[in-house]
């Protein structure tokens, strides 16, 4: 069963076509990869799937429910979390405060309660420990290194218990030793039932991690399949090396 379905989606910026009749399915319980040369439309596809950009045409559905052009918070509330290529954390909040921002969806009385004594606090600490930055919990997030910010963004998405997570270059800027640990964490979460869609330029990371890989070129998928199949696909080699 497909948990995310993108059907014939188009998106242009002025005269530049970012997505051109793009269709993509992500099966439930999968770690799916999305690769392609720079400017192939991967991040734009992420943006339209999570409500940060409106589509010009086509549809997006999540678990059978239409989410085309829905607001980002609505989509997030339904269970689709995402990280950004350039991390978007809250730099002047501490690491632990960042973790609590993503659990704001509650009534007014809940909002007036103290965040540090909430039930989510313990879980926030556990998740920081899970990604390995719990010791930095009291530091302003802006003081973290780029890789640490990536991990923080990943952790604060997890606290909202998403069903699907879209990771935009999760390994970018993360030190090589940590990349393997990060892949292990993604696999562990996947075993717990979370579906992943990963955009990444680090081919080794994608090929080792993903069950299924889709290759984008000029705003549309040109190949899809198991990593080993995609790697051999002449159209993929052409897209990466041809122009």
């Amino acid at each position: 069963m497909n948990v995310l379905e993108v059907a014939n989606v188009s998106k242009s910026y002025g005269g530049i076509v970012a997505l051109n009749g793009c269709s993509l399915n992500v099966a439930e319980g999968q770690i799916a990869g999305l690769i392609g040369p720079n400017g192939s439309g991967k991040t734009t596809l992420f943006n339209v799937m999570t409500g940060y950009e409106k589509v010009d045409g086509g549809t997006v559905t999540f678990a059978g429910r239409p989410i085309t052009n829905a607001k980002p918070d609505t989509i997030f509330g339904m269970g689709v979390g995402r990280t950004f290529q350039l991390t978007r954390i809250f730099p002047r909040l501490t690491v632990i405060e960042n973790m609590h921002v993503a659990v704001q969806r509650q009534g007014m009385l809940g909002l007036l309660s103290r965040w540090s004594s909430s039930g989510e606090h313990q879980r926030a600490l556990e998740l920081l420990d899970f990604v390995g930055i719990s010791r930095l919990k009291s530091l302003p997030a802006g003081n973290l290194s780029y890789g640490q910010k990536k991990l923080l963004e990943f952790a604060f998405i997890l606290i909202a218990n998403p069903k699907v997570i879209l990771l935009d270059e999760p390994a970018g800027g993360v030190n090589p030793a940590m990349i393997n640990v990060l892949a292990g964490r993604i696999r562990e979460l996947n075993r717990q039932g979370i579906t992943f869609l990963v955009v990444e330029h680090n081919m080794e990371f994608v090929m080792n991690l993903c069950h299924h890989v889709t290759v984008m070129h000029r705003g549309t998928p040109i190949a899809a399949g198991r990593p080993a199949e995609v790697r051999q696909n002449p159209a993929v080699l052409e897209a990466y090396l041809g122009d």
Partner: peptide, 22 residues
């Protein structure tokens, strides 16, 4: 010290991201 206040501080740092997180 409230969740409401944390939301305000998140708005100060990145309002669109805060909105996207609910």
């Amino acid at each position: 010290n409230s969740k409401f206040g944390l939301g305000l501080l998140a708005i100060r740092d990145d309002e669109d991201r805060a909105l996207g997180l609910g």
